[in-house]
Write a protein that binds this DNA or RNA. Structure first.
Lengths: 186, 186
DNA sequence: GTCTATAAAGCGATAGAC
DNA sequence: GTCTATCGCTTTATAGAC
């Protein structure tokens, strides 16, 4: 990785936090400028197409992170059950036990969904598919694996909403633990 | 109900749709003016404190609707199982099989959560409590009823995210049906 | 009560100096 | 590359005519 590529990664990480905290509509260039430490001129040098490009690249970088750190390990783990356990652990860490919101989920619920529909779909389909593959390796039939995987991802997104709404991170970690237990057991 | 109270109800309904579609930050007075059919001057005559008051009253009206049409029936149904079935049916109808988003959930995930934290909490606590009361009447022990109720509400919110993300309303209705089955059975 | 006109501030985006 | 200055537009909110 070159030096400028690494710097771009740092900028995308800061951008992601701003979009997470304020949503696409609420993330102003003033907030972005403050969070990244770059003036507007520099930001438009990095992202000629402005805010939309920033969000698109952030979503792409999040998807990349999940592919590398969650989906691929889930598919290639020698023990699928351990792979699933690692997924839940990584998910709890990534979302800071529910104190950090899922930007892709926020975009899915918001008005900007139409602009980023393809990226939103890719993210969730990737998650469901990788989890379903692990469940099949655990012996589940194709349809059951898909259905259970979709439901587990749904539970994670729901847990983020409820944890934020009740302002209680224990709700999130508990929901994840129960989801995992349910997934491996039945 | 007086004539002006009914008119205010109509305005709040139109306001709710705008906030649902664009979020708190994205709901501009221009959009609100178009949706309600009132000029900005009239809007500030109805809501002297502007956008924040509009959203606060919308959230209050949503909570009132859920108390009247979901929480209270859930508590007073002669058959708790039928009360729960009615809740799921009303929920599916209210959210238009997942094509309509939950404004309270959207607010919970967004930056405006801090402003409306109390109202968000009231809404979800009211739902969980009412559902837990029905489950207790079905024979569940106190802790189990609470835990299962919280999980069911979590599933509804998660289903809204996934249905919007995958752009598939079948996902929502199917998730609700499975949630209901799971809740009454075990 | 409802409107139009307008204020004051903030918005995304661009130009141009360095 | 990064900045400051600025454009043109939109934002929330207010004032005042009717």
């Amino acid at each position: 990785m070159t030096k400028t590529e690494a710097a771009r990664g740092d900028i995308l990480a800061a951008l992601a936090e701003v979009f997470r905290a304020h949503g696409y509509e609420g993330a102003t260039l003033a907030l972005i400028s403050e969070a990244t430490g770059f003036g507007k001129g520099s930001l438009y040098n990095f992202f000629p197409d402005g805010k939309e490009q920033m969000a698109a690249e952030v979503l792409a970088s999040i998807d990349r992170w999940f592919v590398d750190n969650i989906y691929t390990p889930l598919r290639t783990a020698s023990d699928p059950a351990k792979g699933i356990a690692a997924m839940y652990a990584a998910t709890d860490a990534y979302f800071r036990s529910g104190q950090r919101v899922c930007l892709v989920g926020v975009v899915a619920l918001g008005a900007s969904r139409d602009i980023f529909a393809a990226k939103v779909k890719t993210y969730f389909v990737g998650w469901v598919d990788a989890l379903a593959a692990a469940l099949r390796r655990l012996g589940d039939e194709r349809g059951a694996a898909r259905r259970k995987a979709e439901h587990a991802v749904l539970e994670i997104q729901g847990a983020l909403v409820i944890a934020r709404a009740l302002d209680d991170s224990k709700v999130f970690s508990r929901a994840l633990a129960e989801s995992q237990k349910r997934l491996v057991k039945r």
